[in-house]
Design a binder for these strands. Structure first.
Lengths: 99, 99
DNA sequence: ACTAAACATGAACATATATTCATAAAAGAG
DNA sequence: CTCTTTTATGAATATATGTTCATGTTTAGT
C-alpha cells in the first residue's frame, strides 16, 4: 500500500501541474461556473477548456450539472482548493525562487 | 503579479508530478542522503537519479554538499515536505479516488 | 423543421518529459 | 600514475501532454 503513495501522489500533482487546469480550479474555488464563463475568465478556447475539464472530471476534482444548454461545474470537494491555497502560501514565503 | 501565480504554481506542481522525484523528496524529508543511498533506496539507475536531482536542484528544492567522492543531498527547506505530507493526508481522506 | 448556442470529442500536430546508454569528471586507493 | 568509485552530463529515443481544428451532440428559440 505504501508503495502506492508516490504513484498516487504523482498522479494528483500531475493534474495540478498545468496552468489551464489550475486557473479553472482556482476559479471554481470561488464560485460555480458554466463552460462559457470559465472560457471567458481564463481566456482560452472553448475546446481547450472542455478538454481540460474532462481531465478534471476523470480525476474526480470537479463535478457538473446540466441546466438547459449550459453545464455548470463546481469543485468535487474542498480538498483541492485547500491544497492549492496551502501551496500558494508556502510559495509566497520564498521570495523569488520557485519554492 | 497575480497572473504569475498559476504559472509559478504549475511549475511547482510539475516538479512534484513525477514518481522518482517524489520518492527522492520523501526520502530526503527523513534524512540527508548521498546519491548512492538514494539510488539504492528508490531502486532506479544512477543516471536517472542524477538527472532528477538536477531538476530538483534547479528548482531550489534540494541543496547538496560534497564530502570526498560522495555528494550529500538534503531538502532546501521544509516547505516541500510540508506540502507533500499535506497532500498525502488529504488524498488519504478520499477512499479510492485520486482526490 | 431549421438555425443557433453551448458543450464535447476525435484526430493531428508540436512540444515536453523521463529513461537509457555512453561517456566525462572528480576524487580517493594502491 | 593507474584504477576504481561516485556522480554528472549529453545525445537519443520513446512516450506523454496540451492545443488547435474540425465536427458531433444536445438543447432552445423561431
Amino acid at each position: 500500500m505504501d508503495e502506492m503513495i508516490p504513484i498516487k501522489l504523482a498522479e494528483f500533482f500531475k493534474i495540478l501541474s498545468d496552468q489551464t487546469r489550475l486557473k479553472i480550479l482556482m476559479l471554481l474555488s470561488k464560485k460555480e461556473c458554466n463552460v462559457s464563463e470559465i472560457q471567458a475568465s481564463i481566456g482560452t478556447s472553448q475546446s481547450t477548456v472542455s478538454h481540460q475539464l474532462r481531465i478534471l472530471r476523470q480525476a474526480n476534482l470537479v463535478k457538473y450539472s446540466k441546466v438547459g444548454k449550459k453545464v455548470f461545474y463546481q469543485l468535487y470537494d474542498k480538498h483541492v482548493s485547500v491544497i492549492i491555497n496551502f501551496a500558494i502560501e508556502h510559495l509566497l514565503e520564498g521570495d523569488g525562487k520557485i519554492a
